[in-house]
């Protein structure tokens, strides 16, 4: 949907590419390894539950599906925010950025509720290897979403105070890359951790 927009102008660089985007893509490449390690650790320990509850006792698929859908739709609002700023409509951009942040907050609220429920049902960070690997993986993802929300709110405030130039869509694009990455990590987590049954 955003394919029709020309890339944003950026200062001259030796590579001919936008350094901020290049740095973000390199960072996201390294983040793959970060989350990949946690996912493989979870897969190793998901059946090591000790006396604590198992994933079958805890996971509420319909509830997590709604959370996943909310995060997926936040990627759409992020695309709409970028599209708005590229079309010069800064008010619409702020509305879509706020909508993205709101959807992200809804996801985080859902995760806090899920964690609270799990703790009440007897799964904590130290209950079992399953508990440790689950909370570390999903907790780090939640931390990434929270950082993304702060960046989205920061962009909205900067735009409100005129700190984003009239043609400057680059910061929105770079933050958008980070936000979409957080979304694709959840796509993998939702499938591998929640939907694929443990053996």
């Amino acid at each position: 949907m955003s394919a029709a927009h020309p890339p944003a102008e950026h200062p001259h660089t030796s590579t001919g590419l936008d350094n901020a985007k290049l740095a973000m893509w390199a960072f996201l490449g390294s983040e793959c390894l970060f989350f990949g390690s946690f996912i493989s650790t979870y897969l190793l320990y998901r059946n090591v539950t000790g006396d604590g509850p198992t994933s079958a006792d805890l996971y509420d698929i319909p509830y997590t599906s709604i959370s996943s859908f909310v995060l997926l739709m936040s990627s759409l609002t992020m695309v709409l925010a970028l599209s708005s700023v590229q079309n010069g409509d800064r008010r619409a951009m702020r509305i879509w950025l706020m909508a993205t942040a709101f959807l992200g907050l809804t996801f985080i609220g859902g995760q806090v509720f899920e964690f609270t429920t799990f703790v009440e049902e007897g799964l904590t960070l130290s209950t079992s290897a399953f508990g440790s690997s689950f909370f570390v993986l999903t907790g780090f993802h939640g931390a990434h979403v929270t950082i993304g929300i702060l960046m989205l709110l920061g962009l909205t405030v900067m735009s409100s105070f005129g700190r984003l130039g009239p043609d400057d869509s680059r910061p929105v694009e770079v933050v958008g890359l980070y936000w979409h990455f957080v979304d694709i990590v959840w796509i993998v987590i939702f499938t591998v951790i929640y939907l694929i049954p443990s053996g």
């Binding site: 949907m1 955003s2 290049l22 893509w25 996201l28 390894l33 992020m78 695309v79 990455f181």
Partner: peptide, 26 residues
């Protein structure tokens, strides 16, 4: 998501290679 929302389909191949390197290592 990566091809359309993150524009890898339309952007420089260098971005694709950077991300693919991380993904392959993972």
């Amino acid at each position: 998501v990566i091809l359309w929302f993150m524009h890898l389909r339309f952007d420089s191949r260098i971005f694709t290679r950077l991300f693919a390197a991380g993904l392959l290592l993972t």
